[in-house]
């Protein structure tokens, strides 16, 4: 199947010295931090990410998807899972925060057609607002399939509706929308869509890939992985990718016994967005 390449970087990334302008906690453990970052706001595109330098100077930096972009404000959504995210969650107005970005290759909204299913699990919803806005702006119909553990963890549904998306929800505990996985709803109702774009935990993305195959739809998946550098230097965040993918890094035929039909692509550099049918995971 011929698939276009994800859009390449248009602007060189940089270190952005930003100042926190606002902070809110829409659900326990989920924090949205807004910063003033005019250059980043002007250059970042749907599905790209930033690395947040830890204010303490300890521990490696943290990869975060960009949530909102308006004017010179950029916001980041994070879920507190460990010491690195806890530190970022404690930021408040006026604090400084260094961000590296924009990084990676984002969603290719132009090849998603005109009736797009966006699928998000948990804070995987963060990088979905920009493509929702972009897709609606070019006349596409957008449905956000949004799943989380419980109703309280489904944040900012009204914001997605405000940009013109229809929101379909699912919760593990049945407190809002479908009782079960969001991918169950996608499998049931998704046949009418032109393509899928998804972000969330790995098990959900694998499930999206399966559903996409069943529905004969193409899917762009934004993968989640532990990054060290975030800029393509350390090769720590790889995924096996079809050699014939336009995103596959050039690599010679491997040694005897190792020659395979895939190469290791860096999620931070060639990704984080890949076509589901090109992944060999």
């Amino acid at each position: 199947m011929e698939t276009p390449c994800m859009p390449a970087l248009e602007m060189s990334p940089a270190v952005h010295a930003t100042v926190v302008s606002d902070r809110r906690e829409p659900a326990p453990g989920i924090v949205i931090v807004g910063v003033r970052a005019p250059q980043l706001a002007a250059s970042i595109r749907a599905g790209q990410f930033v690395m947040a330098v830890p204010p303490s100077g300890e521990r490696v930096s943290t990869a975060l998807g960009v949530y909102e972009v308006e004017g010179d404000r950029v916001s980041l959504m994070l879920v507190v899972v460990g010491p690195r995210t806890r530190e970022l969650a404690l930021l408040s107005d006026g604090d400084s925060l260094a961000l590296l970005g924009p990084l990676g290759n984002g969603f290719d909204c132009d090849s998603l057609g005109d009736d797009v299913a966006l699928v998000a699990g948990g804070v995987g919803v963060a990088p979905m607002l920009l493509p929702a806005r972009d897709l609606v702006a070019r006349g596409a119909r957008v449905t956000l399939y949004y799943g989380a553990r419980t109703a309280r963890a489904l944040v900012d549904i009204a914001l997605f509706e405000a940009v013109g998306a229809t929101v379909v929800t699912a919760t593990d505990d049945g407190t809002l929308g479908h009782h079960g996985y969001v991918t169950d709803v996608l499998a049931r109702d998704g046949a009418r869509h032109s393509a899928i774009a998804a972000c969330g935990p790995s098990p959900m993305l694998r499930s999206v890939a399966r559903v996409a195959r069943q529905l004969d739809l193409r899917a762009q998946l934004s993968l989640e992985e532990t990054f060290a550098c975030g800029v393509g230097a350390c090769w720590g965040c790889v995924v096996p990718l079809d050699r014939s993918s336009a995103q596959a890094p050039k690599f010679p035929d491997a040694a005897a016994g190792e020659s395979r039909d895939y190469v290791h692509a860096r999620i931070c550099k060639e990704g984080p967005v890949f076509w589901a049918h090109e992944l060999r995971w």
């Binding site: 060290a228 790889v238 040694a255």
Partner: peptide, 22 residues
Amino acid sequence: LPRLGNDAPRLVPVASGLLNAI
């Protein structure tokens, strides 16, 4: 010779450090 490297995961953040197996 070329080497594809190890299977993922290749990184684990740990207390005050990073485990890697590229």
